[in-house]
Amino acid sequence: MGSAAKTVNRIFRFYYDGFRTMSWWGKKVWIIILVKLFIIFLILRIFFFPDFLKVNFSNDRERSDYVLEQLTGNN
């Protein structure tokens, strides 16, 4: 095994052993982290928080024209 492969293997073992021997609270918070990331990125981001300018306009020219309209309009 080359030295680079050894290093990768050591890093993998480091994380693998760390996760395998994790304490009760560690496992619990990892579940919370995964559920939270799922809710944030796969539910909130997609269904509730689209980027308004990206979704409604196809290029930066259209986006800047829209904002220019907003800034100069009768707000």
Partner: peptide
């Protein structure tokens, strides 16, 4: 996320 959805004029500006 909120910047992009609710505060788009600000985010662009």
């Amino acid at each position: 996320f909120e910047f992009g959805t609710n505060w788009s004029n600000y985010s662009w500006f």
